[in-house]
Design a binder for these strands. Structure first.
Lengths: 142, 142
DNA sequence: GTAATTGCAAATACTTTGCCACGTA
DNA sequence: TACGTGGCAAAGTATTTGCAATTAC
């Protein structure tokens, strides 16, 4: 959670051969400050990026960072794709209200790691990871 | 798995006030025969439906059936939405190859029911359900 | 007969790409 | 200087809707 996250991630990007651009810095800062996954549209419209660069630039940045394993692309049921910073050792599952669309990360420990290991062994899939989401109607929407 | 599934589901539809149309029958039969979720495009192009009706009809059928709880709409990471028949007492998690896009249902018991109950109690969300998917590269694609 | 359902076509929404200018290393 | 990046605009892909015609009940 400390502010030093951004510089560290940028260092990782640099190691991967990516250039340090203003857009990269602002995009990462925005994602780190956000406590939930964000869409391309949300990112492109966010304060740090709106005046900074074109939506196509944000799009290509998201592509590049996802390919390099800095970000992860999530489904989350909306028409738009969501992106989140991938931090080693960290994993989040989400609780989503199908009424208002609110997305919140779940704090409880994820209960699927054992099954994930089992699947990895039995199927031989490489680079296995999972995505777990809970959907329902929040008290406000009910 | 028996053939009687379709008539039963149609009966449920009728109880909900839906009309028994050819398109409805074929759509349900297609989904029952499929062992995995399908997209609107796949369904509209499937043998039973291709000559039967317009894609817009399939689209609206999927909407209606989803609203009435006969089907469930899933994310599954592709740009297109996936739909699956919702059978009482049945639940599937999926294993998806990010290379070739293969989707297969996981047989192992789902390990998140306890967490789901916990979330239901703590948050007060109504109609809570979850979606769990594993992503990775299958042996063939690796 | 009446309301639900359908077909066709047009409109959206979000994503993706081409091409040339620009900036970082 | 050279190659990764960025901007603008156009093309793609999947979804969603309007409206008149049709069909189930």
């Amino acid at each position: 959670m400390p502010k030093e996250i951004v510089p560290k991630v940028i260092a990782r990007c640099r190691d991967l051969g990516l250039r340090r651009t203003k857009a990269l810095e602002e995009l990462l800062a925005t994602l780190v400050e956000s406590d939930r996954p964000m869409t391309l549209a949300e990112l492109a419209a966010s304060p740090r990026l709106a005046d900074q660069c074109d939506k196509a630039t944000v799009y290509r940045l998201l592509q590049r960072l996802t390919e390099h394993g800095i970000l992860r692309r999530l489904g989350l049921h909306e028409r738009a794709a969501y992106f989140t910073l991938l931090q080693p050792g960290k994993h989040s599952d989400y609780l989503i209200c199908t009424g208002c669309g609110t997305i919140e990360a779940i704090k409880a420990p994820c209960p699927v790691h054992d099954l994930e290991d089992e699947i990895r062994e039995k199927t031989g899939y490489k680079g296995l990871y999972h995505e777990l989401e809970f959907f329902g109607t929040c008290p406000k929407c009910a």
